[in-house]
């Protein structure tokens, strides 16, 4: 059996008195594209912060590539694109090239400088997200969707095996959302990168992901999109706590 990219066992988390996550068991196998969906306040962002080591779980066990998170050091195997990526200072004078180069900063390390091979990698990553024509443009001059591709490139430049995206399509228009998901699916299929994408947009997710997980304090469902679509409205409203209409898109 292959080692899971991520395994979470019986993890709970609470802020002061309020339980945010209860007994989470969750595993991600290499090569999968997992959509983690859940309503606002369901603990999605908390779970991501635990996985990234920004918060520390009080109970349970989190393993990355088979290693306990307390001992995990190979952070360059993991890429992260945050929700906040689209709220950066848009007047910041940085070119696409410069933004993507930041993805290599910690890999290159202190007291060392970028070399030719790093330059090549930066250009490749920009090419991978289809933004080569814009490499010397200021990031603030691009559209929201284009900026988000650049932040993906920044995460990809260090060649991570596992890419985590927290609500990456906030502020991106519908047409570009689909283009964006297609790009992620290609990265997953062609480059074999394991993806964990957090979103509240269930409908779009089901047409691209290989697995869907529903979170609302607990993991309520984890399976393929077909069986997720078979859930009836009653099951979904149990998860969400209120009635929902999951609009599915077929492509």
């Amino acid at each position: 059996m292959t080692t899971p990219v991520l395994s979470i066992e019986n993890v709970s988390y609470s802020y002061e008195q309020k339980d945010v996550l209860e007994h989470i068991d969750f595993t991600i196998q290499p090569g999968s594209f997992v959509g983690l969906v859940g309503p606002n306040g369901s603990g999605k962002t908390t779970l991501i912060k635990l996985i990234l080591g920004l918060l520390h779980q009080k109970r349970g066990d989190i393993r990355l590539f088979g290693k306990s998170i307390d001992k995990f050091k190979e952070w360059d195997r993991i890429g992260f694109v945050s929700q906040k990526a689209n709220s950066f200072n848009s007047g910041f004078p940085a070119t696409v090239y410069e933004v993507v180069s930041m993805g290599l900063t910690s890999k290159v390390g202190y007291f060392r400088f970028f070399k030719k091979k790093h330059e090549e990698k930066i250009k490749e990553a920009v090419d991978l997200v289809g933004m080569s024509d814009y490499i010397h443009q200021n990031i603030g001059d691009l559209s929201g969707g284009q900026q988000q591709r650049i932040f993906i490139a920044r995460a990809l430049v260090s060649e991570p095996e596992f890419l985590i995206l927290d609500e990456p399509t906030v502020g991106v228009d519908t047409e570009n959302v689909h283009r964006f998901y297609k790009m992620l699916r290609d990265l997953n299929k062609n480059k074999g990168i394991t993806l964990l994408l957090v979103t509240h947009d269930i409908g779009t997710m089901t047409s691209y992901a290989s697995d869907i997980a529903c979170l609302n304090k607990q993991i309520h469902f984890h399976g393929d999109p077909e069986s997720f679509n078979d859930l009836n409205d009653q099951d979904l409203s149990n998860i969400y706590g209120h009635p929902v209409n999951a609009v599915t898109h077929d492509h």
Binding site: L54, F80, S82, A85, F92, E98, M102, T105, S106, V108
Partner: peptide, 22 residues
């Protein structure tokens, strides 16, 4: 010059810099 890339990263996006281990 020595800390240019770290300073640049910190100026652009502090949270991302922290997540990357700066």
């Amino acid at each position: 010059a020595l800390f240019y890339k770290e300073l640049f990263m910190l100026s652009f996006d502090e949270e991302h810099a922290v997540v990357s281990g700066i």
